[in-house]
Amino acid sequence: MTLRAHASGTVLITGISGRFGRLLTRHLHRSHPVVGIDRRPFPEAPRDVVLHRADIRSRRAEDVFRTTPIETVIHLNVMHNPREMGTDSHRFNLVGTRHILDLCVRYGVHKLIVLSTANLYGASPDTMRYLAEDAPLLEGARSSLGRDLVELDMLCSSFFWQHPEVETVILRPVHLIGSVQNAPSNYLRLPKVPLLMGFDPIVQVIHEDDVVQALRLTLTPGAKGVFNVGGPPAVPLSTLLALFGKTTVKVPHVIFEPLARRMWRSGLWSFPPDQLDHLKFACMVDDARIRKELGYSPTRSLEDIASLLR
């Protein structure tokens, strides 16, 4: 496959005011004209970024497509914060994404990039290793949070096949660590990090900057399909926490699982109990495809990720 130089058309970022959206904007706005849609404000937005305060499900979102010729849509407006998950987020994520997909077709958007996650392959005792992009997404089996995001990923995958005229990219990075509010980052920010006694799965994490890098690479014309994105070398969870200088508490899982549910419901604790399987079993993905096809290579080490959490 021969790839042309980076496209320079207008990029629309949905969910631009989220923490990852803001980070991405700061990396993109010098090379591309950037337009953003979000319900939330983006106070310190760069001057050249056009921000539309709108819900992606609304008619006003369509107006953005109608008034601006858009080459690329980067769809980040997916609620990942486990604390806010519920019927509301379910509707928002699926109805909103559906709307964006429709708009992409109707207004001739050239490329669509969706940020999904590699956690969707699910962690279970018999999860195979080196999960490639065609592995089944099993995370939904146990958690409602996962079910939501699996459905969203599938929605975009079938869109990829139904609409070959839109270059669709689905990025599945491993546990994204950074300023974002997602389960792994919340877990690592806990003052005392719980470990399940006797379980020490090997884990993969990725620095938010490397996700930005992968996203930029997929902007290359011609790049399409599903890509797993890995970070620095995988290490056991206990080694990772030691590298991060975290104090850990080892708890037996038989006591801890019911307790974690209780604490989660009462708001004492920010790690969703549905995700406890990720502390027990490994979910190792293989990102050979993006490395080979787009020349991706992580630039941030585990030490860099550690400094994000301090």
Binding site: P125, D126, M128, R129, M197, G198, F199, I202, P252, F281
Partner: peptide, 29 residues
């Protein structure tokens, strides 16, 4: 055996010692 990775302590010990769940995918890899 499939049973091994579900056990606390044993699963970690076996993994560090290079023992692998016997699925065809793992073996092929």
């Amino acid at each position: 055996e499939r049973w091994v990775p579900t056990l606390p302590v044993v699963s970690t010990f076996m993994a560090r010692c290079g023992q692998v769940l016997g699925t065809p995918e793992n073996c092929r890899a």
